[in-house]
Design a protein around this nucleic acid. Structure first.
Length: 484
RNA sequence: CGCGGGAUGGAGCAGCGGCAGCUCGCAUGGCUCAUCACCAUGAGGUCCCAGGUUCGAGUCCUGGUCCCGCAACCA
């Protein structure tokens, strides 16, 4: 069974942040878990690079938009690498292939595309359109610039999204397009019940020219969002490539809650217009706050993923954002909470369990491990959690076993058995510990790949191979570089 | 009356009709294999407010208060 998982592709307007990092990691867990099961997997991610914002910013920096996009895209690539995230594809919306295929999509969609005059209220101060409601609220005068909104007409191409409203609604209600978590599904269902409007999918070129040309109309470029969404199929080589035929529809698309409308309404609409099946599942994660506050440049509370990784290591990073940020809700990051989780759960509970087991086998049995029992624990809860993208609960399940192991050790007291001289029993108990650890390592593999590999390395061969450094070295608290 | 989500021990959460639970933090005891780690026990809650349904309500219903998202062109 082929497995296709995607992340949303970040807009290269800003620096990579914790939210991006978390999304990459989540999708990576799904991809690794699927690969582990032996399925052919494509895990794709990339960057979204067109649009007015990029053009403006490039102009500010006095470089070409493409140069800016190149630089920024590279930063995301670097982050992915640093996170131990291993996508199979990295698509850029400025890739030639994407551009050509997006144009093919446009042509296939032509039956649902029409030209329409968009009438909006525009403020030249903001260089932005405002909705009827906003304009009314302000009595027709922009409060920021104290000048009246202008009524502007702009000719755009529109996509007949409304036409597909009911079909999308039906797919979502029946879970043919399964939206996780349920609250997100409800949100979208109620939105669809109100009804979707047709959407503008192009911009006049004289206004924004950093975009993909609309086929057959030199005056218009595709609206960024429209074209960016197409990455999910252009990356597979829509329409003719084998991969597309084999891997679409996607098994899971991972997105943040802020862009759910695009992925649960507009994107399905486009797919239906193309006569393609919808993605099977849309997993929507929440946002990350820092010390309980929204992260923002103006608050100056932005924490770079890189700083965390540098200090604690990549697996600790993955661990925190998978377990301590609720999979179905918003979560918080603070250095303090991170450190607590690192010390208690990773170092003291897991790391130490590995350490004490390895130490006892080395000390009492010269490193020789007895007959290790196979899988003994019920993995049902873990599998279910993982299938539901409940990463936090899946790790809860793993830690239940970690705790169980520490309890087991304290109950059996191998150090006392060793004194008593019952070698057979001792060997059995220690082998049991090893069995538990290997099971734990196995479950940890998609989540903390390098730690899982280390645990396996220590015990797998039948002889304990001590680690050069402990699994999660405990850090002496409050050193530099940590601005609480 | 635009739509939706939430309010449970100091903190973060679970429970969604049947003795209020988990993790952290705190206190006490045990152990010594281990990264001064591990294990056990305990203290701590008018489950936002007011009504109602029920033998029984964090859990269902009605009303209210307070927070937080979304509300079509910024991706």
């Amino acid at each position: 069974m082929n497995y296709y998982v995607t992340t949303s592709i970040p807009y290269v307007n800003g620096e990579p942040h914790l939210g991006h990092a978390m999304e990459f990691v989540m999708a990576d867990v799904l991809a690794r878990a699927a690969r582990k099961s032996g399925a052919p997997v494509i895990f794709s991610t990339g960057t979204d690079e067109h649009g007015g914002k990029i053009a403006e910013k490039a102009a500010e920096l006095k470089i070409k938009p493409q140069e800016l996009a190149d630089q920024m895209s590279e930063k995301f690539r670097k982050l992915i690498k640093e996170l131990d995230v291993e996508p199979d594809r990295f698509i850029r919306t400025t890739d030639k292939g994407h551009i050509q295929r997006a144009q093919l999509v446009w042509k296939s969609l032509e039956k649902d595309i029409f030209k329409h005059k968009y009438v909006g209220w525009y403020c030249t101060g903001d260089e932005e359109f405002f909705t009827e409601t906003v304009v009314k609220e302000n009595n027709g005068i922009c409060p920021d610039h104290n000048r009246p909104y202008e009524k502007i007409e702009e000719e755009n191409y529109f996509f007949k999204l409304s036409k597909y409203n009911d079909e999308i609604l039906k797919a979502i209600e029946s879970d043919k397009l399964h939206i996780v978590p349920k609250t997100r599904k409800n949100e979208i269902v109620s939105l669809l019940k109100e009804g979707l409007e047709d959407i503008s999918i192009s911009r006049p070129k004289d206004k924004i020219d950093w975009g993909i040309p609309v086929p057959g109309d030199k005056t218009q470029v595709m609206y960024v969002w429209f074209e960016a969404l197409l990455n999910y199929i252009t990356v597979l080589g829509y329409p003719e490539h084998e991969d597309f035929k084999k891997f679409w529809p996607a098994n899971v698309q991972v997105v943040g809650k802020g862009i759910i409308r695009f992925h649960a309404a507009i994107w399905p609409g486009i797919l239906l217009g193309l006569g393609l099946p919808l993605q099977k599942e849309l997993y929507v994660h929440g946002y990350i706050t820092i010390d309980g506050k929204k992260m923002s440049k103006s608050l100056g509370n932005v924490v770079s993923p890189h700083d965390i990784i540098k200090k604690y290591g990549v697996d600790a990073f993955r661990y925190y954002f998978l377990r301590h940020v609720p999979s179905y809700e918003d979560g918080d990051f603070s250095w303090e909470a991170f450190e607590t989780a690192y010390n208690n759960e990773l170092a003291n509970e897991l790391g130490n369990a590995v350490q004490r087991t390895a130490a006892m086998i080395s000390r009492y049995q010269g490193g020789i491990i007895g007959d290790v029992p196979g899988q003994e624990h019920d993995k049902g809860g873990y599998d279910k959690a993982l299938a539901e993208c409940h990463f936090d609960r899946a790790l809860d399940e793993v830690w239940e076993q970690v705790r169980g192991l520490n309890q087991y050790i304290d109950q059996e007291k191998p150090w006392e058995i060793a004194k008593g001289g019952d070698d057979d029993h001792l060997r059995e108990v220690l082998a049991q510990q090893v069995g538990d650890l290997l099971e734990i390592a196995d479950m940890l593999e998609p989540f903390l790949p390098s730690s899982a590999a280390k645990i396996k390395h220590v015990f797998e061969s039948g002889v304990v191979k001590p680690l050069e450094t402990t699994l999660f070295p405990k850090l002496e608290t409050k050193d530099a570089g940590n601005d609480q």
